[in-house]
Write a protein that binds this DNA or RNA. Sequence first.
DNA 1: CCTACCGATCGGTAGG
DNA 2: CCTACCGATCGGTAGG
Lengths: 215, 215
Amino acid sequence: MKKKSNGQYLENSRRGEILVAAAALFRAKGYEASTIRDITTAVGIASGSTFCHFRSKREILDAVAIEGMRHVLAGAETVAGRQLPPETCLKVLIRQHIGFLHDPPSRDFVTVLLYETRALSAGAKKEVMRLMALYEDIWKACLQGLVPVSNGRLRGAVSDSLLHRLLFGALNWSVHWYSPDDDLPPEVLAEALAELVLPAMRGSAESDVIGRSAT
Amino acid sequence: MKKKSNGQYLENSRRGEILVAAAALFRAKGYEASTIRDITTAVGIASGSTFCHFRSKREILDAVAIEGMRHVLAGAETVAGRQLPPETCLKVLIRQHIGFLHDPPSRDFVTVLLYETRALSAGAKKEVMRLMALYEDIWKACLQGLVPVSNGRLRGAVSDSLLHRLLFGALNWSVHWYSPDDDLPPEVLAEALAELVLPAMRGSAESDVIGRSAT
DNA sequence: CCTACCGATCGGTAGG
DNA sequence: CCTACCGATCGGTAGG
């Protein structure tokens, strides 16, 4: 409950206010191009006051990314707990992911965590990757449910792992073009993406499995 | 001919050497985090010498992005000129795009142009967008050919414009996970992506068209 | 194309 | 949490 309503409980603390302002700036201008002074001006405090709450600028980025990823994972775990039929599950996960990417305040946190991973500290990167792997597991479980017989193999050529990556890319790229206000509604975008994927897995899995890298 | 062999003719001039080194650094560390001194150290000249060839750091980024986008467009125009049947055309475009993203030296230029658009000057951004629209036109022509009757509408719900965006995202996101050396071969990745898309458009277009934003 | 250098701005600190 | 400040580094320039 605390983790889900990200923006609200964050804004109750000064630390949270800084995170919210930083996430918005990092999303708009990028981490490197955003300065401590940008952030503190947005919050309304002196620049030096930042370091009562964070040891460095990087630590703010780390917190934004981890907080964002926790929010995403919590949402997906809720969906997984509902035990939906696979097709519905996929549509709901897609719809939810679009919301994470485009609805404030999560979009600031999620866009930053997706596009500023490079700048994270080693520790934070590891933690974000760990949470992201759990998120991916939920998607893969759902995708595997679409073709029950498939143990990791989907229609013809595409493994569930590869399919997840392609879907993830199609979704995450939408931050570069999609605007919920004057574009098609999120539900419709989600539906379109599901319609693209589902027909591809209704055939029988005849050929060899492609895309399962030896791990 | 001059434009196609990007890396080679670029490296014949000092200006070209700077562009190649800058593209590699911008890709690895990001534009903001890369310094003039990083670039000139890589080239082997003094930092001030940069400004014999470029008026500013931003102008280097502009040149990298425009050069990269010209290369991409030239490649796609060659494919379009071959008048391939639609399915083959799609597969070739996908395969070629993967090459742009992952084969040196174009990958440095292309990754930068995709992920540092924000930092471009207004003029360069406009030019890159213009070229990108031409690139998109080639894809859309190919996609429309897949369902000849479809005038802009594909299977069920997805417009060719939306489908292009989703495909583009699935491809471009691969820079975050794909490694041509120890992952599946590029041909196989291209094949998998084509197999994902093609089944979705073999059905008849029965329902309304979704994703055609009013322009 | 180099040497020598500058003004601005950055992340971060000391002391209260 | 603020004031006052610092050392480092940045993009860029002057003069040759």
